[in-house]
Design a binder for these strands. Structure first.
Lengths: 252, 252
DNA sequence: CGGCGTTTTGACAGGCTTCAAGGGCCGTGG
DNA sequence: CCACGGCCCTTGAAGCCTGTCAAAACGCCG
């Protein structure tokens, strides 16, 4: 639970220049919405890799939108066993649970240097009462989170190790692609095999061996944090089910 | 995907007399909210056990609140493997996903005769724009659903069979107790060991053997659909983590 | 060069799945 | 009244998938 060098930053990106507005799969704000969101964002936060900026069991004063970088949401059992719930990428909202309920049910840790928009939880109701379109967007985001958790649950509960590994890679690659992070079928994955095994509910050793088996099929390549998709169809077939993205999804 | 005898019913319970209003753990409506919810509920639906009233991949015209009975949400893979995501009890909302997104990501099947409130999805935005308190409640319910999925994910990903079985039983028993369905530490569970194994990501045979082992500890008793909690503390210790309920939670 | 985190491999044990079959309960029908 | 079929629970045996233990190779960086 090292909190690391989480620090507010004086220099913040104005929402008009938000890099996320250039991502094609995200919906556009109306001028009024943009105006409100500008006032809603009170600051920016930079987090170093390895630092948790939200912690299970605590109540956070803020919720966040990821502007840049990768993170992951996780829970740990008393004896140290860790389960990664999913990865969080730019345009994802984190900390909503802590904003509407008593406290956070999971922690969130940065995988890369992270830039976050800070949104004060005490003004969330203001958003709900004045901007129902944005409130609806937040519900949409929550439903999407639920969808991803459900798919993950099916993977862990009912898929073999090989299928699981194929499925996450397909899933994460697809999400990165939506956000324009893929170039020539290559994307930089910031997570280790340890992260992958904690996400898949497998041991590190077996994750490694399974990964090797997958690489042997020539469907993927993965060396030195660089991941390359060679044959998505094969991967899809191994996973037993495809990854479905979304267009015009909201972000805040 | 048998749809069974799902049929609208002429006789519906007025919201003022809603049995859920007597449940202590649920928050009370303001008079205005009650008035709106009364207009929002357009009908009631009765579903027979074994019938699915929401189906993965389809778009539903309605969302539902469970008035009475048990159901479960699930997904199936192409080859028939089934994963139960969680159980749904009275005061649970189902079908929200289909209401805010393109289509449902899972199916829902009745375990007992079921009574549902029908809420039209096309009027959901009306709720968001006119009753932000209710919109906030829906977000709360979505966050709660996410919380339960996360706990389930940890179970399946990182707990042993014995821990898993102990955890679900604790969890389901706790939920039933909140709703006043427990009497003298006994509650009628309407699901079979097959359901349990599909929820836990285990085989039926191993679920049975594990259950036997758990019963041997004298922490629980479970015969003929009657479940009795004999020693919650022991069960809790075996599960490795307790179940936490909620007071004054919303329902619609 | 030395140290550390990550990846890789091999050997072995065991938890869980699969296959197979029997028993109990209950509603149906002869 | 009893036979029968269907669903659910139960039990045993065998084998595989996955976990654990152990150690070495690799890459990166101070």
């Amino acid at each position: 639970m090292i909190l690391g060098n989480a620090r507010p930053n004086g220099h913040i990106t104005p929402c008009e220049e938000c890099p996320l507005r250039r991502v094609p799969c995200l919906r556009e704000f109306s001028p009024e919405e943009l105006e409100f969101v500008k006032r809603f964002k009170i600051d920016e936060l930079h987090v170093e890799p390895g630092a948790s900026f939200l912690t299970e069991g605590t109540r956070s004063e803020h919720l966040y939108t990821i502007l840049e970088g990768w993170a992951f949401r996780y829970k740990v059992l008393d004896d140290g066993r860790r389960q990664i719930l999913n990865f969080a990428l730019p345009a994802d909202m984190v900390g909503l649970q802590g904003a509407v309920m008593e406290e956070m049910e999971h922690s969130v840790e940065a995988l890369t240097p992270l830039t976050l928009c800070i949104l004060p939880r005490r003004r969330l109701y203001e958003l709900y009462s004045q901007y129902p379109t944005l409130a609806f967007d937040i519900t949409w985001l929550a439903a999407r989170e639920e969808k991803m958790l459900e798919e993950h649950l099916v993977s862990i509960g009912r898929r073999s190790a090989l299928e699981r590994v194929a499925y996450v890679l397909l899933h994460v690659y697809g999400r990165a692609k939506e956000l324009g992070m893929v170039r020539d079928n290559v994307v930089a994955f910031p997570f280790t095999q340890q992260h992958l095994s904690d996400a898949l509910g497998l041991s590190l050793v077996h994750t490694n061996k399974t990964l090797k088996r997958l690489i042997a099929t020539k469907a993927i390549r993965w060396q030195g944090r660089q991941f390359e998709m060679l044959n998505g169809a094969v991967l899809d077939q191994i996973a037993g089910s495809g990854y479905s993205g979304q267009k015009n999804r909201p972000f805040i």
